[in-house]
Each structure stands twice: as C-alpha cells, then as structure tokens.
Write a protein that binds this DNA or RNA. Structure first.
Lengths: 164, 164
DNA sequence: GCAATTGATTGCATTCCGCAACTAATTGCA
DNA sequence: TGCAATTAGTTGCGGAATGCAATCAATTGC
C-alpha cells in the first residue's frame, strides 16, 4: 500500500499544473496578431516524430478522429502539414510535417526551454532526469485507467460509477 | 544549462497526462445519472483546506472570478458548499465546505487512491515521494511563467509573442 | 453623504471536442 | 466480376468550459 497522502498530493500538484497551463493557453493562444496556437498544434509534436495516418494520430493524442480531422485541416491550411498518399492503402493519407512545421516545433520548444531553463536554475540534470523518468512511469501506469473502460474492470470510470 | 532534451521530454509527458485526463473528463464526467463531476468540483479540494472568499478561490485556481462564481453556484445547489457572511467585510461571503462536500472529496480521493495504488504496485514510497517533491518544485518554478505577464518580462507569453 | 473601490454575478462569444451520421475508397467473398 | 461489409476520413450538431465586459451591490474614504 503506497503512501496515500503522497498520492493525494501528486494529484493536487498535477491539477495545479493542468490548471495553470490551460489558463495560459486560453490567454496566450487567443489574442491573434499573426499566428496563434490553437489546439491543433498538439499534433505537430507527434508528427515531428514520424508521419502517420489520421487515425494513428488520434490514438496517440487520445482524441477522436473527428477532432484530428479538424486539427489536420487547420495545420494543412497553415502549411505545417502535408497530406501524402499512403502507398499501403489507397483510402488513407499520410500526414507529413513540412519544413516550416518542423521549424515551428523547434521554435515552440525553444521558447519553453529558454523560459524553463531560467526558472530552474537550482536544478541539477540529475533531478530533472529523475523527474522525467518517474513522471513517465506514472503516466504509463495511469494511462490504462483513464482509457475508455470497454469491458475491462478497474478503470477510473468504473470506480466513479460505483462498479468496482 | 539544463539538459534540453530532458526538458522537451518533460513537457511531452506532461502533455500526455493532460490529454488523457481531459479525455477522461470529457467522457466520464459527462454522462449524468445522478451526480457527475463538472469543472466546479475543482473548488472542493481547495475549500477542503480552508474556507475562503470567491476571489481567493479564483486566484488559487488561476481562474476568473466569473468562472468561480458559476462553480460556487453549482456547488451550493448541490449542497457541497455553504455561503457564510464574512465577519471582516460585509460585501464578501465566505465559502465553507459542508459535511457532505467533505465526504465527496474523501470519496473522490478514495477512488483515485484505489485505482492508482493498484496500478503502481511496482513503486516504492520513496519513488512516489520523490516524484511529488520534484513535480511540486517544477510546478512552483513554472507557475510565474504561466501567469499573466503584466509588465514582468520573461513569461512564456512574452516569449511567444517575440517580446523577449 | 457621495464618489471611488471592491466583491460578486450575469451576458455574450469563442474554443474545444465527443458523438453520430455520412461519404468515399477498398477489400472480401460468393 | 460485382456487391456487401469494412475502413479512412469529414461534417453537423450540441454541450461544456471559460475569458472578458458590463453590471449590480455593498463598503469605505474622504
């Protein structure tokens, strides 16, 4: 049995992060004077890793294909993503990030790196890597719990509904 | 200069968490068959710590007073929160969590504890506490960056807009 | 005692997004 | 070969969340 208070705290601090991030998104990404980041930009980080089809992208985003369809339309309009025929399946299209899409990802990362690097002057690389490793493990563990329950018992959804 | 790749990874894994959590919220907390958790429930965790006024609650949530006003109205309707006169200021009302509000918080925590405890069987308390500590430090460091920039330079917002 | 301040609420508009219905292309099998 | 079943993707629709601006109400400070 894990330290239950620590678990509570973990969710509290995660909630704190989520909230402040959402808030920043609503402020920052709203005011348009050129190019502002909508929700669609999430896709770029995934597509920067490798080209994929819309459905795969939806899965890796934990999103509905319909949402992804809208994201992609926007990113294609902006020139950040290009549609290519999928040689393996005529129905499908491969989504490929363009050069300026890749530049945009790099720019977004640079902003974050720059800001965080200055805000985390008291951190060692070791601490940072430990955080990444542990948080990664946590998210991996939590992922199935948050997934649509289907038949599998034990999801948060089940627990919420008193089924388990 | 911190490990830049680790920073990128950190944001990636955070994005992963945010996304899966949002998705679960959109699914789970929607279908109503009695009591479903809307966004208003965030407040309960804060009010469980101590009574406060709406404006304070807004600040601790990083939210607009208008949103909080709506949250509170809902929670009062549900009987989870009670409005009390603030002895210090006649205009203000103190928001106080009720007994059933507190029960509800406990129930929500129990669900999470139960699910996570089973999903994290390979964790030691030490690892968990380290995660909580490091993530807490990270969020503390990130908080000012995500805040409305006002005049202070160096916020993410400024960086986004090319001002810094 | 009245203007300025402050706490809170409401109206409005926008974004996000899931679900369901639909189109188009492909595949599988009789 | 041809048609039903499958699969990729898109669009329509509605609901939830929430920021901003305007407003109301009570208080405080000359």
């Amino acid at each position: 049995m894990l330290d239950q208070n620590a678990l509570d705290e973990l969710f509290d601090v995660l909630a704190r992060y989520v909230r402040m991030r959402d808030r920043a998104a609503h402020r920052t990404f709203r005011t348009p004077d050129g190019d502002v980041e909508s929700a669609a930009f999430k896709c770029l980080f995934h597509l920067a890793r490798q080209p994929m089809r819309a459905r795969e992208l939806a899965e890796s985003l934990h999103a509905e294909p319909s949402s992804v369809s809208r994201y992609v339309a926007e990113l294609v309009d902006l020139g950040f993503v290009r549609r290519e025929a999928d040689p393996a399946d005529g129905r499908a299209t491969l989504l490929v990030i363009t050069d300026i899409g890749r530049e945009r990802v790099a720019a977004m990362r640079a902003v974050r790196r720059h800001a965080m690097d200055r805000a985390m002057t008291d951190w060692t690389d070791d601490e940072l890597r430990t955080l990444v490793r542990l948080l990664g493990r946590f998210v991996d563990a939590a992922e199935p719990l948050f997934a649509p329950s289907g038949d599998k018992p034990g999801s948060l959804e089940d627990l919420m509904k008193g089924r388990a």
